[in-house]
């Protein structure tokens, strides 16, 4: 007897594979990106099926949304000159097929050895959760049990943004307002959407302590709001003073550094949160992370939409 759930799972899985295939092998680059975005949306469904709503939120915002926007934007610039068609080379293709097939077979063999029933660390988290400042398992892992990962993750985001901004500085580029700003419809829409985005990301941030949601998802949403504003010609991030921008971009790492420095001086572990006041600390950290994530998101998208100044004349 095949249950409805199994049918649903298998359809999502098949859809994922089909969309991935389309996205990877469609000749036209733009179509390929469109399939990739659809793939991201179905990934969000898969996360829901796996009872991972935090991931579904993040995937919809990042996998489908942000990565899609960044890809489309880059394709628009690059494909205009280079063309959009792919040119497969048969020898390379064959080798890559063989390697990937070998890896796939090895992984399936490994998968058969994975125990079908296991708790992982679920019990350990459940037992320790009352000792932490939050009630949501995922948030407790991210900001308490394995806060060091998150500390490093904020540093990785900062690294990406530094690389993007260094390139921007190099190419004598200046930010040009996107041409959509003339549209009254868009401005009106943004006027309506901006407060909603702000409220909802605030909700996600607050919810993270006891329900799915959290700093990262809230930050991406806030960033999306920022991008909308830039689109509508309301320049928030692109007109920030340079120093303020740097502060806000590094707020997440700075928050972690401040916290862990204080803890170290107090003779505690690098990220050994104190019993009292831990909730305040976690919420403050989440706000800092969300702000820096939002600024990072806007900088990544807006920062790459720059036009080259005409090259300087040689003397």
């Amino acid at each position: 007897m095949i249950g409805l759930e199994v049918v649903f799972d298998v359809s999502v899985a098949v859809l994922l594979v089909v969309l991935a295939l389309e996205s990877l092998y469609t000749p036209n680059l733009f179509t390929s990106i469109a399939f990739f975005i659809a793939f991201g949306l179905v990934m969000a469904l898969a996360w829901v099926r796996l009872q991972a709503p935090d991931l579904a939120l993040a995937e919809a915002a990042v996998g489908a949304g942000l990565t899609g926007v960044l890809l489309l934007d880059a394709a628009r610039e690059i494909a205009a000159v280079r063309g959009v068609e792919r040119t497969p080379r048969s020898m390379v293709r064959l080798t890559s097929l063989l390697v990937a097939a070998g890896v796939g077979v090895a992984l399936v063999a490994a998968l058969l050895e994975v125990p079908p029933r296991a708790a992982g660390l679920a019990e350990a988290v459940r037992e320790a959760l009352p000792l932490t400042a939050v009630e949501h398992g995922v948030t407790s892992v991210l900001l308490d049990f394995r806060a060091l990962d998150t500390f490093f993750e904020t540093a990785v985001l900062l690294l990406a943004v530094i690389t993007v901004l260094v390139l921007q500085a190099h190419q004598h580029v200046r930010i040009i307002p996107w041409e959509l700003s003339a549209s009254p419809v868009l401005s009106g829409l943004v006027g309506l959407l901006a407060p909603v985005v702000l409220v909802f990301s605030g909700y996600l941030l607050w919810a993270g302590t006891h329900a799915p949601g959290g700093a990262f998802q809230a930050g991406v949403l806030l960033g999306a709001g920022g991008i909308l504003l830039e689109l509508a010609g309301v320049h928030t991030v692109s007109r920030l003073p340079r120093r303020a921008l740097r502060w806000l971009l590094s707020l997440g790492v700075a928050g972690f550094a401040l916290l862990s420095g204080t803890l170290l001086l107090a003779g505690r572990g690098l990220l050994e949160l104190p019993g009292a006041g831990a909730r305040t600390i976690v919420i403050a950290l989440e706000i800092a992370i969300a702000v820096s994530v939002a600024l990072t998101v806007v900088s990544l998208v807006v920062g790459s939409n720059l036009r080259l100044e005409p090259p300087e004349q040689e003397p």
């Binding site: 029933r117 992982g120 679920a122 995922v138 892992v141 394995r146 993750e153």
Partner: peptide
């Protein structure tokens, strides 16, 4: 793979 709700650790790691 766990009967009483999923293990939150892979969820957090996947988010990272």
């Amino acid at each position: 793979r766990h009967a009483d709700g999923p293990d939150p650790v892979p969820h957090a790691l996947a988010l990272t």
